[in-house]
């Protein structure tokens, strides 16, 4: 058994992130922006994978949690003034956004996770839309015209570092005796309950954890684009994230990361055909599903046999 391995990977990833942020001023700004987009997408997809993939609870409201984290941390940044220069400020404000998203995730999750399948999907979609509508009507965050002038604090290092932490957290959780309950709930709720798994609590923990990381991703996104618009967090955004999880093969961490990278880069590659870009993108989704319905990167149904 290789218990220490996971932490070593975490340290390596963080070291790489620090290294990357040291060199990042030398990169082309456009590529830098795309790579940060990729990092944010990885956080979103991996965290949704905990809910949709590992735990099997179909959520369509991930963009809503992203919005909460984004708006909250951006609002803090616009309110605090001087101290945003401090090194510790940014991770703290991101975590504040994450915690608020997690708290809302708890409020949403406790009542709605009793529902199953399509019903859970529509309720989470509904909550996501409610969050968007509230943002659209709240003057403090710019209402419908959006929140402008957010300081540019997201760097390659922060985006990549948080992506590493997210992947580590979710992979280690799922590969522990505690976290195996997520997969048990996914496989068979009744059998899980009969063997002592508190299924409601397990689902809520997955939901809240996923919401926390979505909130962080939202904060990174806000301080990357420097502008937030409520329409950017509608249910189509949630669906984008769901597509990453499904293409990656539901519950396969590696596959989901690869899908997040691929789906973020694809529109960039298609930039030259801007007129047909989205048509090609949607055609690719259909074709991929028809040809590889178990996910792009699944080759054998071999999963998690060792810890």
């Amino acid at each position: 058994m290789n218990f220490r391995g996971a932490k070593r990977w975490l340290l390596l990833g963080i070291a790489l992130a620090i290294l990357a942020s040291y060199f990042s001023p030398q990169f082309n700004r456009y590529y830098l922006g795309v790579v940060i987009d990729v990092g944010i997408a990885i956080i979103l997809a991996t965290s949704l994978n905990l809910i949709n993939g590992h735990t099997g609870q179909f959520s369509l409201g991930h963009a809503g949690f992203m919005a909460i984290g984004g708006y909250f941390s951006a609002w803090i940044s616009l309110s605090v003034g001087e101290s945003i220069q401090a090194f510790w400020y940014f991770p703290l404000s991101l975590c504040a956004g994450g915690v608020l998203a997690a708290a809302v995730g708890w409020l949403v999750g406790v009542p709605s996770l009793r529902l199953r399948g399509d019903y859970l999907a529509i309720v989470t979609l509904g909550f996501g839309e409610i969050i968007r509508v509230i943002a659209q009507n709240t003057e403090a965050v710019g209402a419908a015209s959006g929140l402008k002038g957010i300081p540019k604090l997201t760097t390659l290092g922060w985006a990549f570092g948080f992506a590493v932490i997210t992947v580590y957290a979710i992979a280690t959780l799922v590969n522990s005796t505690y976290g195996r309950a997520f997969i048990a709930v996914h496989d068979d709720e009744i059998a899980a309950a009969s063997h002592g798994v508190n299924t409601t609590r397990t689902k809520v923990v997955a939901f809240v954890t996923g919401a926390f990381f979505a909130g962080i991703a939202g904060g990174l996104y806000a301080h990357h684009k420097q502008f937030l618009s409520p329409t950017g967090f509608d249910w189509v955004k949630s669906i984008d994230i769901v597509v990453m999880v499904i293409l990656g093969g539901m519950g396969r961490t590696g596959g989901v990361i690869a899908a997040a990278i691929l789906l973020t880069l694809m529109p960039e590659f298609l930039r030259e055909f801007s007129e047909y870009r989205m048509i090609i993108y949607s055609l690719l989704i259909i074709l991929l599903m028809l040809l590889r319905p178990e996910g792009l990167f699944s080759f054998k149904t071999q999963r998690r046999s060792k810890s």
Binding site: I183, D187, D188, R303, R304
Partner: peptide
């Protein structure tokens, strides 16, 4: 049984 898990898990 939990169908996506190994015997041990």
């Amino acid at each position: 049984l939990f169908r996506s898990m190994s015997v041990l898990d």
